[in-house]
């Protein structure tokens, strides 16, 4: 009896030890990536990097302002396109389609879910190729624009935001919706004033998940937004570069002073990384401020 107990303790220790090792293994590459990006990226993190483009630069110097602006513009427009569609679909599926008896609506909901699952699985380059084909057929093969890139990214973002949004909305207790309906509220009002506020923190993280998914996307933008060394604030026409594409182009098309190109690539990677982290921090702050605001408003009343 005793030696069985002992064997169990040993097995338990070994198992726990193995799990801890897995945990450590999982974070080692992550720490390494962050560390390398920090140490190599800080070299060119100067004022020029944030105030200049690469126009006319062939060696050292220059910056990534055009890529930073490009990332902001493309990501923001992709989010503006994707989020209403994604949350709208999620609301329709959870609040309306889930409680229907109509076979046609049920079939439509099944189809929509299936398509979204497929969409979530397509490689991002395919989304880029799709947009490329659409543009080539409508505006001509040479057309490049930031907006086209944003649409391609929105295609990638919609399934991510829709799925996590749907999960969050499905977790809002049915009892709360019933309570709202029992007070004589129409369903849209219950959705607007009970379901959405209850799900808000989760919806914010769904949104963030979507942005994190696309902000580092390179392939589709290479195809439809293209490279440029110059500033371009116009989403609707002209090539527009983003940070990941900038990293790629600096690394791929090194000039004579290869060191300078590498340094810029690392700095751009660092800015991208910092941006994603900042976004996460910001979202946490927004949620907390909202809670506080509500309390302040209550206290004033």
């Amino acid at each position: 009896m005793l030696h069985i107990a002992k064997r169990r303790t040993v097995a338990d220790r070994v198992f726990t030890g193995g799990l801890i090792a897995c945990g450590v293994l999982a974070i080692v590459p992550l720490i390494s990536v962050v560390w390398t990006t920090l140490s190599r990226g800080s070299e060119r993190l100067d004022i020029d990097f944030f105030t200049q483009s690469m126009r006319g630069i062939t060696g050292a110097g220059g910056g990534a302002l055009h890529a930073i602006m490009g990332t902001l513009l493309i990501t923001a427009s992709a989010t503006l396109i994707a989020v209403p569609i994604a949350f709208g679909t999620a609301l329709w599926l959870t609040e309306y389609a889930a409680s229907t008896t109509s076979p046609a609506v049920k079939a439509l909901a099944r189809t929509v879910r299936g398509v979204i699952d497929v969409l979530a699985g397509i490689p991002s380059i395919v989304a880029g190729l799709f947009m490329y084909a659409v543009i080539a057929l409508t505006l001509g093969p040479g057309y490049r624009s930031g907006f086209a890139g944003a649409v391609a990214l929105a295609l990638i973002m919609i399934p991510v935001v829709e799925r996590s949004g749907e999960e969050v909305l499905a977790r809002v207790p049915a009892e709360l919706k019933e309570a709202g309906l029992a007070l004589g509220a129409p369903q849209w009002s219950v959705i607007l004033r009970v379901v959405l506020p209850t799900a808000l923190p989760g919806l914010v993280s769904a949104l963030l998940l979507g942005i994190s998914r696309i902000i580092g996307e390179t392939a589709p933008l290479l195809l439809v937004a293209g490279f440029t060394d110059s500033m371009n604030y116009n989403l609707s026409a002209g090539r527009m570069i983003s940070l990941p594409v900038y990293v790629y182009s600096q690394w791929q098309n090194k000039g004579v002073d290869a060191q300078a190109y590498d340094a810029r690539a690392w700095s751009a990677a660092l800015v991208l990384l910092a941006g994603v982290l900042l976004l996460h921090g910001l979202a946490g702050l927004v949620i907390r401020l909202q809670r506080q605001n509500r309390q302040v408003r209550r206290a004033r009343r």
């Binding site: 009892e175 309570a179 029992a182």
Partner: peptide, 11 residues
């Protein structure tokens, strides 16, 4: 209802 269900986002 059977289980108390005040709205959690409201005072």
């Amino acid at each position: 209802f059977q289980r108390p269900n005040p709205f959690p986002t409201m005072s």
